[in-house]
Design a protein around this nucleic acid. Structure first.
Lengths: 230, 230
DNA sequence: TGTACATCAGTGAACGCGCGTTCACTGATGTAC
DNA sequence: TGTACATCAGTGAACGCGCGTTCACTGATGTAC
């Protein structure tokens, strides 16, 4: 009558391994995340890890997916907390959650969105949906705001630029997204804004600034400039 | 009577080594840029490289400085070509040059602005001035536009946010920059905008979009929103 | 409940690999008289 | 212009290191009767 079934122990050790890998990733960068270093930290032999992950690449993939999931969950929680409020408030909350998560998990943010790890290629079928979710979490509130009449985009953003019309239309029909091209386009704009404010803050490129205030101000001004009704 | 003096040959081989390193960097990422790989590509033994660089880190530093220099030169050339034109045109040209250089030299852009290479720390005294130059190339035209009365920032950017006033003042006095806090603040905004549009385009995060058009439209709209006189 | 067997987790040795760097050396290139 | 010497570039062997992964194995954990 074991307290934990074998499968449960297995899963829990898998989590331990990932946690250790994350710790090493944060401390030493991607190169520090070697199987042998993880095994050393766990007081275990390196081959033992193969019971839990078929290869190093699979471990990395698991960390990548966890990263996207963690970021997405944080954004979604922020969004849901503003469920009753104006769409602009929800968006701002989600974007703040993005920033907060990134600064709280810098190594994972870099793993997901930074320079690709040489020699590792993420399996698209697993990794892409996890990445797309983040994007959808920005697009959906935009679309809602448009449909509810809370957002009346000002020129030049009242329509999608001509060069983007075709690619966006293709994207929508290929994936059966129930959203307007305008919402998607604004999603890309939001995504780029977030990236440009977050990654440099993380890497210390904005050093002299009060980066948290900078982020807040920029996002607030950007949302305001979009044309949300007051 | 040698055609090239020894020192000239030395310098030319140094350039060959850097060029090979850049090629490997582009092809295989930072990990592919090993001294042994470079030596192999040059049909030379690895220890021979120590005649030209005291260590691998010095080679990397040289590449980093070259990267900043190349990017800065491209921006400066664009700026000078618009010397007679309106400040907004000069800024737009410089920002376009930034983007063009990044897409033409993706590996170097990542080396400069991407995830730091594990185990390598750039010597600040060499590397920082090269990095700061890029920033100054954005701030200077801003300051000129302000002084010439070509730029009348609209709220909320007619003044620096309160949280940033002190850090920016400190930055200016510590370095004796002959520029206004407003110009520096706009410089950071421009920098962040550029980063957020360039790095994701480079990494394929904006895949479905026409990224060149996206960059152009965003920069144009941003400059317009600043309040340049027509 | 007790025994016999199957499954699983983890070990230790070994594989082949690539790495940065050092060292003593050889041969070529330049310099001084 | 020719010779003697100093300087430099590059070699080949070796150092010690860490890596991912495989393999045959042992001992523990669970299952079936």
């Amino acid at each position: 009558m074991p307290r934990l079934k074998r499968a449960e122990v297995h899963d829990s050790i898998r989590e331990d391994i990932k946690a250790t890998a994350r710790r090493l990733l944060a401390a030493e960068g991607a190169a520090g995340m070697s199987l042998r270093a993880i095994a050393r930290a766990l007081d275990i032999t390196a081959p033992a890890l193969y019971t839990y992950f078929p290869s190093q690449d699979d471990l990395i993939t698991a960390l990548v997916v966890d990263g996207f999931t963690g970021l997405g969950d944080a954004m979604q929680a922020a969004l849901e907390q503003q469920a009753g409020a104006a769409a602009a408030a929800g968006l701002h909350a989600a974007m703040q959650a993005y920033y907060a998560w990134a600064l709280a998990h810098p190594a994972e943010y870099l793993l997901i969105y930074g320079t690709p790890i040489p020699g590792y290629t993420a399996p698209g079928d697993i990794t892409v949906p996890a990445a797309v979710r983040i994007f959808i979490l920005l697009v959906t509130p935009m679309e809602q705001a448009l449909q509810r009449g809370e957002l009346h985009p000002r020129p030049p953003y009242d329509r999608v630029p001509p060069a983007q019309a075709l690619p966006l239309a293709r994207l929508i029909t290929a994936n059966d997204y129930p959203v307007s091209p305008t919402a998607i386009y604004l999603g890309f704009r939001a995504w780029s804004l977030l990236y440009g404010l977050t990654m440099p803050a993380l890497l210390g490129h904005l050093m002299p600034l009060e980066t948290a205030a900078f982020f807040h101000d920029e996002v607030a001004a950007w949302l305001h400039s979009l044309g949300f009704s007051p």
